[in-house]
Design a protein around this nucleic acid. Structure first.
Lengths: 142, 142
DNA sequence: GCCAAATTTAGAATTGTTCTAAATCTTGAC
DNA sequence: GTCAAGATTTAGAACAATTCTAAATTTGGC
């Protein structure tokens, strides 16, 4: 079991951002911490509000900038489960998102994206899989 | 080879909408025709502009209303390939969307959604699969 | 320490979508 | 056919999510 310091993987962040020509800044670290801390697929607005608690000066545009920086450098994923605000997720393992239509929760689910057969010539860089339905709890209640 | 009248499947539209408690109106038919006519996954704004050509009086809100009506009654799908405007598609066969990062085109691709293994208890109603990468043409050019 | 480049900030602007209230159209009951 | 109830459309306002802008600040290399 690994202990985690409040600022996880500082070096890892620097490397990943650096490889994309970006710097690690306190704001980017803060936004990343927010994503890591509560993995409930928050919207940019939610990230903004959470980051503001630890860093009251942070601005709206910066949160978007930081999220984009994290996504570009492979530290977070941008998830769209439905119309409305985009959500973010620090789980870089290939996975899909199950969206419960009843309680609105978003769950990470493993999926065999390796096995996805594409027509000849298509080169897939990234899968974005959203599944809608009922989660076990809500399915039971019906 | 089936000949198609300009207004396809009028009866089918009436039935599908009717089953959801909705009526077939000229506007809904027009919006559906737009979707059927050019299957390039237009945004609501694009649908609006195309529908306006045949029906200059049609309003913005009506296009959204019609698109929602079509989606609710299973005549069209709402597709999100990335941040930005939602796109629409009249192909109701289970399929995924391949988004070319280079030329921005969206392709329909068949995918074995039947075979998607979900954790126990989850009940999937609908899959929304967006794949990002390069299409055959753009892949060749690199 | 100084400079150039990157980043952050507040707020305005833009874009995409939904809401509102009034007018119009349908449908079914008579 | 006529009428009332309900659904739909319309224009435009309102709202929400995101991007842009220009000035100030920070950072890293020399």
């Amino acid at each position: 079991m690994k202990a985690r310091s409040p600022h996880v993987d500082e070096q890892h962040l620097t490397e990943q951002l650096g490889a994309t020509g970006l710097r690690l800044t306190p704001q980017r670290q803060q936004v990343y911490d927010v994503l890591r801390h509560k993995r409930d697929h928050p919207t940019a607005e939610e990230v903004f509000m959470r980051a503001k608690k630890a860093m009251p000066e942070i601005s709206h545009a910066t949160v978007y900038n930081c999220l984009d920086a994290l996504v570009k450098s492979g530290l977070a994923r941008q998830v769209t489960v439905d119309r409305g605000a985009t959500r973010y997720c620090p789980n870089m393992h290939e996975h899909g998102h199950f969206h419960c239509d009843s309680c609105q929760t978003v769950f990470d689910v493993d999926l065999p994206t390796q096995a996805m057969p594409l027509p000849k010539g298509f080169e897939a860089a990234h899968f974005d899989i959203a599944i809608h339905g009922n989660c076990p709890d809500c399915a039971k209640k019906k």
